[in-house]
Design a protein around this nucleic acid. Structure first.
Length: 565
RNA sequence: GGCCCCAUGGUCAAGUGGUUAAGACAUCGCCCUUUCACGGCGGUAUCGGGAGUUCGAACCUCCCUGGGGUCACCA
C-alpha cells in the first residue's frame, strides 16, 4: 500500500464504495442521442433571483430541443448561507414559470428521478468516495492549515506581489507523509481535502465553450479545497460528482463560473471521467437609477431581483419568460411577430445566438411584452387569470369576482372580445381592480368620487347637459342612435355636435361634442379614461346609468350652490 | 494587481468585408379619434479610441480604453 492509499484509508475507513461503484449505480440515461440534460442548481437562499430564472430559461431551452431533461438540484452544502426552511418554496417558484422534469420539488414532496438524492447534503458519502479515490491516487491530500495561517499566507503573497492561493511552496501540507498525517489526525486536528494541482501557472489548456468558442487558460495550479472540515464537498467537487452521476450533458451556468473551468477540467481528468459540454451565459445587470452606473442586480435595491415580485404583482408568467427569452435569444422577437399566437415553447431556441455580453434588465420592455400578451387574452381567460391571482393576493376582490362572475366577464370583454385592436392598458393583474373599479358599485360610489370634469367647462353647463342627457337617455338605443342623440343634447345646450363645426367657428359654441362626451364619461365613471362609453352603459345597465347621472347632478348642484364654477 | 469574458443608439439588438447601419422598447412630433387607449406616419439617437490588412472595415489583426467576472472551508 502506498502512503497515499494509507492516508485515504485513515481518513475514510468507512467509505467502501468506489467511484466505479457509483458510476455503475447511476447508468446512462435512456434518451434520444441528441437529447441534452441540463439543470438548475441553486443554493437554498430561499428565493429565486431573476438571474437564476434567466438560467432556467436557457437550461430549459437547451434540454427541450430534443426531448432532454431539465432537473432541479439543491446545493445546500453551505449551512451558513442557508435560510432555514426556505428551500422548499424554490422549485415551486421556478415551476410558476417553467416546468421541472426531475429532481428536488421541496422537502415536503418526493423527489422525481432515479439519479438522486438531488439534495447535496444527502450526498456526503458519495463525495467522500470520490475524495478518497483522489487521495488514494495521490491527486488530493488532507490539509491541516487553519484559517489564521491561511490569512497570513494571503497577506504575505499580496505583500510579495505574487498570485494568492495555496500552491507550490505555499502548499505546506502538500507532501505530508502518512506518519505526519496520522499524527495530526490522532491529535484531533480538523482538516480539509485539497486537490493536488498539476499546473505550473504557465502551461495552458483550451476550453471549448458552447457559447463562447475556444478559450485558453493557464492550467489550474492552485490546490483548491474540495472537502470542507465538516466533511461536506465544496461546489467544485459537488459539480463534478453530481453532474457526472446525474448525467448532465450541458452545464449551462452563469459567466461567473468561467474562471473555475480549469479546476473543473482537472478534476474530470484526475477521475478519468468525461467532461460535459459547458455553456457560460452572460450575466444580467441593471443600470442604477441614481448613479446611472451599470451594476449587479441587487436584492436590496431592485425589488424585482426576487422573481416573487412578478408573481405578487401579477405579471403573467409567460410575459416574464418571453421578456427573458427576448434577452436570451435575439431571434425570439421576430419569431414572436411572425407567430403571434403560438406558445413560446414552440420557439426553436438556439443557444449559439445567445448574446455573449451582459444585458441590462429593462422593466419597461417587460411591461410592453406583458401588455401585449394580456391584450391577446379574451374575457374568459382574463377572468380566470385575474381570479387566480386575486385568490392569493387580493381576497376581497376575488370574492367579488366570484360573486359577479358573469358581470365581471362582461366588464373584461369591453374593448377586448372580438376587437381586432384590443386595449393594451393592463400590464399586471394587480392593476385590474383599479382599472375597472367604477364598474362595480362595491368599489365605486358616485358620491365619493372626485369630480374630474374638464376645467374649461362651467359646472352649470355641465349640470344642464347632464340633466338633458338623463332626460333623453334611452338604454335600448343602438350605438348610432345613442350617439346621434348625444349630439342633439350637445346642440341644444350650445355645444357643437361636430368637431368640424366647432373648429370653423369656436367662439359660437360653449364647447364641442368631445366635451359633452367627457361630461357623461366622468359622470358615469369618475374618469376621463375609459373604454368605449356605449359599451360601458350597456354593461352598467339602465338603472345604474340613471342612478349615477342623478347622483352626479345632485353633487354638481351642491357645488354650484356653494358658488363654485 | 494576476487570469478570464465582453464592447453597434438611453435599453434589447440585427449585422459575419461593399447596407441609405434592420427591428423592438423608451422618447418626441403629426395623423386617426366621442375620452383614454389601439393603430398609422415620421423625428432625435449607435458602430469606444488608435494603428494595421484591404480598392473598400461595424465586420479581420494588434494595441489602448472602458465595463464585467474571478482570485473563500459561498454558490
Amino acid at each position: 500500500m502506498t502512503d497515499a492509499q494509507k492516508i485515504a484509508e485513515l481518513l475514510y475507513p468507512n467509505i467502501t464504495k468506489t467511484v466505479e461503484d457509483y458510476v455503475k449505480q447511476y447508468p446512462p440515461r435512456n434518451l434520444n442521442p441528441n437529447a441534452e440534460v441540463t439543470r438548475l442548481a441553486p443554493s437554498p437562499t430561499g428565493y429565486i433571483h431573476i438571474g437564476q430564472l434567466f438560467q432556467v430559461i436557457a437550461n430549459r431551452a437547451v434540454s427541450q430541443k430534443n426531448n432532454g431533461i431539465f432537473y432541479f438540484r439543491l446545493e445546500d452544502t453551505d449551512s451558513k448561507r442557508e435560510v432555514a426552511g426556505a428551500a422548499s418554496a424554490m422549485p415551486e417558484v421556478v415551476q410558476h414559470f417553467m416546468p421541472i422534469d426531475e429532481g428536488f420539488y421541496g422537502f415536503h414532496k418526493p423527489e422525481k428521478g432515479i439519479y438522486g438524492p438531488y439534495v447535496q447534503s444527502k450526498r456526503k458519502e458519495i463525495y467522500q468516495a470520490f475524495a478518497k479515490e483522489l487521495i488514494a491516487k495521490g491527486l488530493a491530500y488532507p490539509c491541516f492549515c487553519d484559517e489564521a495561517s491561511e490569512t497570513l499566507r494571503d497577506e504575505e503573497q499580496k505583500r510579495l506581489k505574487v498570485p494568492t492561493g495555496y500552491y507550490g511552496q505555499w502548499a505546506k501540507c502538500r507532501n505530508l507523509t502518512y506518519e505526519q498525517v496520522k499524527a495530526n489526525i490522532d491529535a484531533g486536528k480538523p482538516y480539509t481535502i485539497r486537490i493536488k494541482a498539476n499546473g505550473d501557472g504557465h502551461e495552458r489548456m483550451i476550453h471549448s465553450d458552447l457559447l463562447r468558442g475556444k478559450i485558453s487558460f493557464p492550467k489550474n495550479y492552485v490546490d483548491y479545497i474540495l472537502v470542507k472540515s465538516d466533511g461536506l464537498a465544496l461546489y467544485h467537487l459537488a459539480h463534478v460528482v453530481d453532474d457526472t452521476l446525474m448525467h448532465t450533458t450541458v452545464v449551462c451556468r452563469g459567466e461567473e463560473w468561467l474562471s473555475s473551468v480549469p479546476l473543473h477540467y482537472q478534476m474530470f481528468e484526475y477521475l478519468g471521467l468525461p467532461i460535459p459540454k459547458y455553456m457560460h451565459t452572460a450575466l444580467l445587470l441593471t443600470k442604477d437609477e441614481q448613479t446611472g452606473n451599470v451594476r449587479k442586480i441587487s436584492k436590496r435595491l431592485d425589488p424585482w431581483a426576487n422573481v416573487q415580485y412578478f408573481i405578487e404583482k401579477g405579471y403573467p408568467s409567460e410575459a416574464v419568460v418571453e421578456y427573458l427569452l427576448n434577452i436570451a435569444n435575439s431571434k425570439f422577437e421576430p419569431w414572436r411577430r411572425a407567430n403571434p399566437t403560438l406558445p413560446y415553447t414552440e420557439y426553436p431556441f438556439d443557444p449559439s445566438n445567445m448574446s455573449k455580453s451582459g444585458a441590462m434588465f429593462d422593466i419597461k420592455k417587460l411591461d410592453d411584452v406583458s401588455k401585449n400578451i394580456i391584450s391577446r387574452m379574451n374575457s374568459e381567460e382574463m377572468y380566470e387569470r385575474v381570479l387566480a391571482w386575486a385568490q392569493t393576493y387580493d381576497t376581497p376582490f376575488a370574492r367579488l369576482l366570484e360573486e359577479k362572475e358573469e358581470y365581471a366577464k362582461q366588464v373584461f370583454a369591453m374593448d377586448r372580445d372580438g376587437k381586432p385592436r384590443p386595449r393594451k392598458d393592463i400590464t399586471m393583474w394587480s392593476e385590474v381592480k383599479a382599472n375597472c373599479a367604477y364598474m362595480f358599485d362595491l368599489l365605486y360610489y358616485v358620491k365619493d368620487r372626485h369630480l374630474d370634469f374638464e376645467e374649461n367647462i362651467s359646472l352649470k353647463d355641465t349640470k344642464a347637459v347632464l340633466e338633458e342627457y338623463l332626460f333623453e337617455y334611452d338604454h335600448n338605443m343602438d350605438k348610432q342612435a345613442w350617439f346621434d342623440n348625444m349630439k342633439k343634447v350637445a346642440r341644444a345646450n350650445g355645444f357643437a355636435g361636430e368637431m368640424k363645426e366647432y373648429k370653423e367657428n369656436p367662439s359660437a359654441f360653449k364647447g364641442h361634442i368631445t366635451n359633452v362626451s367627457t361630461m357623461v364619461r366622468v359622470a358615469l365613471t369618475g374618469s376621463r379614461q375609459t373604454p368605449d362609453l356605449y359599451e360601458i352603459q350597456q354593461v352598467l345597465g339602465d338603472a345604474r346609468v340613471r342612478a349615477r347621472l342623478v347622483e352626479t347632478i345632485r353633487v354638481l348642484k351642491l357645488f354650484i350652490d356653494k358658488g363654485q364654477n
